[in-house]
């Protein structure tokens, strides 16, 4: 891949994301909706509880923000481009699949960074996060976004239509949250299930978020979680490149 085509395509993807109302809503507005939702729930729970529910829910909110941005802001637009046959047109140029997929990352990474900064600012303002915890939180978020985007690439590669994508993505996001213990804490699950889920990226991401934001004891060393998430991201991206189809037609 040439650096020029990657840069130009990344810029084109950024423009498409910002200029298309549907995509901008999915990638930018909807994640903020999750933040507002969880903060509102925490606020109401706080009125009748001694514990700080907002602090408990903030890691889950960040998890949903990053996941929804990566899934809804990446998969649906890509599947839509395939249905419009824009990808088919791209396939007649020397552009490689991996260049196309990776060109989707920069603008989404930037949006994700914006969310993390927002959450960190909020958490710092309420003394939820320590100064030492901020870099850990940032690296965890970057690793988590890499994992979510790579899973999004695989979904974009296999889902046949925008309708199918919209129907599937909500389920996948909830499944990820469930597997990560963001909905039902892992400690409430049988030991065997916990052991298995501990080797999956969602649980590692929730663990680092909960540790850095909510002050829960870390179940895993942060560096091992980063490696696991980035490793999964690399494998999933390679898989997506292999199964990605430019075309809806049977050749």
């Amino acid at each position: 891949m040439t650096g020029n085509s990657f840069r130009t395509l990344a810029l084109a993807n950024a423009r498409e994301l910002v200029r298309d109302r549907k995509t901008a809503f999915a990638a930018i507005v909807m994640p903020l909706f999750f933040l507002v939702l969880f903060l509102a729930v925490g606020h109401f729970v706080n009125r009748s509880s001694e514990s700080d529910a907002i602090r408990m829910l903030l890691p889950t909110a960040l998890f949903f923000m990053l996941g929804s941005m990566a899934f809804f802001g990446t998969v649906s637009p890509t599947v839509d481009l395939r249905q419009r046959r824009t990808l088919r047109l791209l396939s007649t140029t020397p552009l490689r699949k991996i260049t196309f997929l990776l060109s989707l990352v920069p603008v989404r990474a930037l949006v994700a960074l914006g969310y993390v900064v927002l959450v960190v600012a909020f958490a710092t303002a309420f003394d939820y996060v320590t100064l030492a915890g901020i870099p850990v939180l940032l690296v965890s978020a970057v690793s988590g976004v890499a994992f979510f985007l790579s899973l999004g690439f695989v979904l974009a590669a296999v889902l046949p239509s925008a309708e199918a994508a919209n129907n599937t993505l909500s389920l996948v996001l909830i499944l990820m949250a469930f597997l990560g213990g963001a909905i039902l804490p892992l400690r409430s699950m049988p030991q065997g299930v916990r052991d298995v889920l501990g080797w999956l990226p969602p649980a590692r991401l929730v663990d680092t978020f909960r540790h850095t934001i909510a002050g829960f004891p870390a179940q895993f060393p942060a560096w091992s979680s980063w490696l696991l998430m980035l490793g999964f991201a690399a494998v999933l991206t390679a898989l997506a490149t292999r199964v990605f189809s430019w075309d809806t037609d049977n050749r």
Partner: peptide, 25 residues
């Protein structure tokens, strides 16, 4: 190639589209 029923990126301008296609070559 110009296949039948192919669409370009809808939200790019004409100039941006051609700069993008130029970058592939």
């Amino acid at each position: 190639v110009q296949p039948q029923q192919a669409e370009l990126f809808p939200n790019l301008t004409v100039r941006e589209t051609l700069r993008l296609w130029a970058s592939f070559h």
